[in-house]
């Protein structure tokens, strides 16, 4: 966030009421921050503690392992994460999700960069019409079922491409890129054109390198969107459980009333201990949840730089 200038408020005499108010808001924000963070912390400590203690509800504030006499003491273990490799279907959903996050984001960013550059070209035939043609799609959609029937008609059900292709054209991101490119001095481009560079060359050699900040912004937001995707998997992949995304898989785990231990692969590969530990469906849920949260938390520090850019630039209409 941009640093605020020290406001003149600090220089004046502060009344008792002011101080009480200051303390009250600090308390309020501390509490709210705690409410935002604690659930993640709670999930985490429950995945790295002893599973028996988790089951009986002893792990509430810090991770625990059993000591020699069977009581809970502070300690961590990661065997749950290792045992996840034995949970059926999880591997394929992670692969699918990683693949769509990488491919889908890359194609979306390239398309947005390309389209965002072209719509700045006043000379294009019917430019403003085509630009509006793209932008309108942000505000209007035909509805869920017609969309589904369309995907069915295009052969994009039970098909990995359904994760990639429809997401390529993202009008909001095109607007972001366009607005950004318009702020690049036109002289840079003109000099290249005078030297005889073609449009695509100007795009690749001048525009792309200069618009890296905005492309990084849309890439990160796009990647998070892809990683979190659930609805398209739920709607389109009815006959291909191997193409379910991670969130969809987690949704199934969360809703399965049967013991998730049944999902463990059969046949001697799992150690007795791990099997017993993981028969606990609560722990599987927590661990899978953590697995799908961790990548978000990892990119989060990088994202923060782009928050304001991402949310503000969109407010600037094209």
């Amino acid at each position: 966030m941009r640093k605020r200038e020290t406001s003149p408020k600090t220089h004046i005499h502060r009344t008792v009421g002011d101080r009480v108010f200051d303390i009250a808001i600090i308390l309020f924000f501390s509490l709210f921050t705690l409410i935002c963070v604690f659930p993640f912390y709670y999930l985490l400590i429950n995945t790295i503690s002893d599973n028996d203690l988790v089951t009986s509800g002893y792990v509430n504030f810090y991770p625990m392992l059993k000591n020699a006499s069977g009581n809970g003491v502070f300690g961590i273990q990661i065997s749950n994460y290792i045992a996840l490799q034995n949970v059926q279907d999880l591997g394929s959903s992670i692969m699918v999700t990683v693949a769509r996050t990488i491919l889908g984001t890359a194609l979306m960013v390239l398309t947005s960069a390309w389209a965002g550059y072209l719509v700045t070209k006043q000379k294009m035939w019917k430019r403003s019409f085509w630009y509006r043609f793209l932008v309108i799609t942000m505000y209007f959609n035909a509805g869920l079922v017609p969309w589904y029937m369309n995907m069915l008609m295009m052969g994009l059900t039970d098909n990995f491409l359904a994760y990639i292709i429809p997401g390529m054209v993202a009008p909001y991101n095109i607007i972001l890129v366009k607005t950004y490119i318009e702020s690049i001095p036109a002289s840079l481009e003109e000099s290249a054109v005078i030297d005889g560079a073609t449009t695509s060359r100007v795009w690749a050699k001048i525009i792309l390198p200069l618009s890296v900040p905005i492309l990084a912004t849309i890439a990160i937001f796009g990647a998070v969107g892809n990683w979190n995707s659930f609805q398209d998997s739920l709607l389109l992949m009815n006959n291909r459980p191997d193409l379910y995304t991670l969130q969809h898989r987690l949704y199934i785990y969360l809703n399965s009333s049967s013991n998730l231990g049944a999902m463990m692969s059969q046949g001697g590969q799992i150690s007795e201990q791990a099997a017993q530990g993981l028969l606990n469906q609560r722990v599987i849920r927590y661990t899978v949840s953590m697995v799908s949260i961790i990548p978000i938390l990892l990119v989060y520090p990088f994202m923060q730089r782009y928050f304001v850019k991402g949310i503000m630039l969109g407010a600037v209409k094209g």
Binding site: F32, T33, C36, V37, P39, F40, L43, V224, N228, S229, F230, Q247, H248, L250, Y251, L254, R285, Y286, S289, S292, I293, I296, L297, Y300, M303, Q304, F307
Partner: peptide, 16 residues
């Protein structure tokens, strides 16, 4: 810390 929840999916909110 208060913006983190915005970046997780509703499925994860439900898990929480």
């Amino acid at each position: 810390f208060t913006t983190i929840p915005n970046f997780i999916s509703w499925v994860l909110v439900y898990a929480i």
